[in-house]
């Protein structure tokens, strides 16, 4: 067997960086394709960029955008709170709570969101009056359902209740990712179940929960466009009202797309910072040793004083 001459440590050879020819080829192909697409889009008259520019900041579009943002933010906020509640109930030892949470998820994940929205909107037909009082007894408070259920409240109810079911699953998987040792350590220092959840489990579960929640938020941004069926004027409804009058469908859809993309970009940046916040303490992870005999790969000498490595008997001598 022939062997190349072993490298000698004292040889001082010049160092060349590794070559990645494939990367350069890929870069040229991708850049070329991107330039072509952009060029085609901007030179194609039928995109009507002048109309896009004309409507991008038009007041009805901006007010639609504002409604979209409001609906997304409020529905997500309620959805997250509901999701935490559903997950905690689902994992609770109380069988009634856990069944109820399961049934909630089953129902709201199992029916089309569009149906749920219509259902809330037409609730007055089913339940004409909302009454607060003692069951089968006197009532303290009565209100016509139609007075409460506006397109906005129906949209909010539909979106947030639906979101709560999905968030419940996301939060539950996050909670389950936290080891039992953490809850036991929390119990051992006398923390109540609520304190353990709030101070120990959820902050760590957030690392698992945030990325899919980012997905949900971006998804919600676009699901809000479904409320078009109950006539709440968010971004897509607003542009559709305009193009049904002017027939400039494509440029107006581009206007909506631009705003959705812009908001998504902002949300992605936000997600980055939220993720970084919950990454506290996790970044430079040194794994916990599994067993006592897992030998450490020989590295630099351990930074432990020699006396500490010796048997405790030696230490005892010192104490006496």
């Amino acid at each position: 067997m022939t062997r190349t001459a072993p490298d000698r440590l004292d040889e001082d050879l010049p160092v060349l960086p590794a070559r990645y020819t494939g990367r350069w080829v890929a870069a040229v192909v991708v850049a070329g394709a991107a330039v072509m697409i952009v060029y085609a889009m901007f030179t194609n008259e039928r995109f009507q960029w002048d109309v896009v520019g004309q409507y991008l900041f038009a007041p009805p579009v901006l007010s639609g955008l504002l409604n979209t943002l409001l609906l997304t933010a409020v529905s997500m906020a309620i959805g997250i709170v509901l999701g935490i509640a559903v997950a905690v109930c689902r994992l609770s030892a109380n069988p009634i709570l856990s069944c109820a949470a399961w049934a909630y998820s089953w129902f709201f994940r199992g029916t089309p969101l569009m149906v749920q929205l219509l259902f809330w909107f037409f609730m007055a037909a089913l339940v004409p009056k909302i009454v607060l009082g003692i069951p089968f007894g006197p009532s303290f408070f009565e209100i016509q359902t139609n007075a409460v259920i506006s397109p906005f409240t129906a949209a909010l109810l539909g979106l947030s209740l639906n979101e709560g079911a999905y968030m419940g699953e996301i939060v539950r998987s996050g909670i389950r990712a936290i080891s039992k040792g953490q809850t036991e350590a929390a119990k051992a220092i006398g923390m109540s179940r609520a304190q353990t959840m709030r101070r120990v489990v959820l902050p760590q579960a957030m690392r698992v929960i945030i990325p899919p929640t980012g997905n949900e938020t971006i998804g919600m941004l676009k699901y809000t466009s479904l409320v078009i069926v109950i006539g709440y004027s968010e971004l897509l409804t607003s542009v559709s009202i305009i193009y049904s009058r002017t027939f400039q469908t494509i440029p107006l859809l581009i206007v909506a797309a631009i705003w959705y993309l812009a908001v998504t970009a902002v949300l992605s940046v936000g997600q980055y910072y939220v993720e970084r916040h919950f990454e506290r303490g996790f970044s430079p992870v040194r794994p916990v040793r599994a067993g006592r005999n897992s030998g450490r790969p020989s590295g630099p000498a351990p930074a432990v004083p020699a006396a500490a490595a010796a048997s405790p008997a030696v230490e005892l001598e010192r104490l006496k």
Partner: peptide, 19 residues
């Protein structure tokens, strides 16, 4: 929880709160 506070416990896997 109150009773537990008078008993300190140290675990094999440390179980420190990593965050």
């Amino acid at each position: 929880s109150r009773q537990r506070a008078s008993v300190g416990m140290v675990f094999q896997q440390f179980n420190l709160f990593p965050h």
